[in-house]
Amino acid sequence: MIPPDLVEEVVVNILRTAVTTLPSDVVSELQKAEAEESDEIARTQISTILENVRRAGEIAVPMCQDTGIPLFFVSGGCISEIEDAIKRGVVRATEEVPLRPNVVHPLTRRNAGNNLGIEMPHVNYSPGPRDYVDITVMPKGAGSENMSALRMLVPSEGIRGVKSFVLDTVVSAGSRPCPPTIVGVGIGGSSDIAMTLAKKALLRPLNVRNPHAELQALEEELLAAINQTGIGPMGLGGKTTSLGVRIDMAHCHTASLPVAVNLQCWAARKASARIFLDGRVTYSTEGFW
């Protein structure tokens, strides 16, 4: 078994890394966008973002004041007893990093001040190899999360319906999710599965191709169309509305075609740790691909 204290320590470490360091795939797409933007205001926005990220890294403080809600993805063969350690890690990171206490009761809006609550932190488990556990944290800010959308399409609407829904969602979100964004899309499953797929799709780095050729092509096509809209960085106009589109899918009922969109702001923060049974830990901001 992996010692709970080690898990707690690792959770603090990955939360700190996630909120202070932007994964290199995101940074390099932002740099490309900075070079390609011809509009003065658009370029200023991206330079400001890059400068902000650099300073945040230098002085080890959160790059954005919205340090999100603590969403975890855990996979491995021995994952019992991890949840309590994750909770303790979140409480400590809130104090030590620090993180903004964002978690409130959905109705009374009461804030416990430590980012804990019912089902928070939220942990997604999936089975994995027996000899290690992977823990990934994705602190998800509200500006982009609030733009999430689900549509239960009629199967006959098919791929055209999917494209149309994704484009419309990005356009109606406009400046609110802090563009340039990364667009997570989940196709198939059921309503809840599609939403989960859309979020998990965001875990794949921008430089890792989709394993399904048809989805890879769809990602590229959608990205080009989204960047043609001219929403631009911060919605102030320009070429860079999104840095990438990431699509995951699941088989679904013969009578349904769910499609979900989960937008991720430029502050696409995540960090992972792989904890081996012997106590060794390796860290990565891009995850293990």
Partner: peptide, 22 residues
């Protein structure tokens, strides 16, 4: 400025849709 960008986006949208074949 946001309204101007919105107008620009509405002008661009038909082209983006055509690119997607929709």
């Amino acid at each position: 400025l946001f309204k101007k960008v919105e107008e620009e986006v509405s002008r661009n949208l038909p082209f983006a849709r055509r690119r997607l074949g929709i």
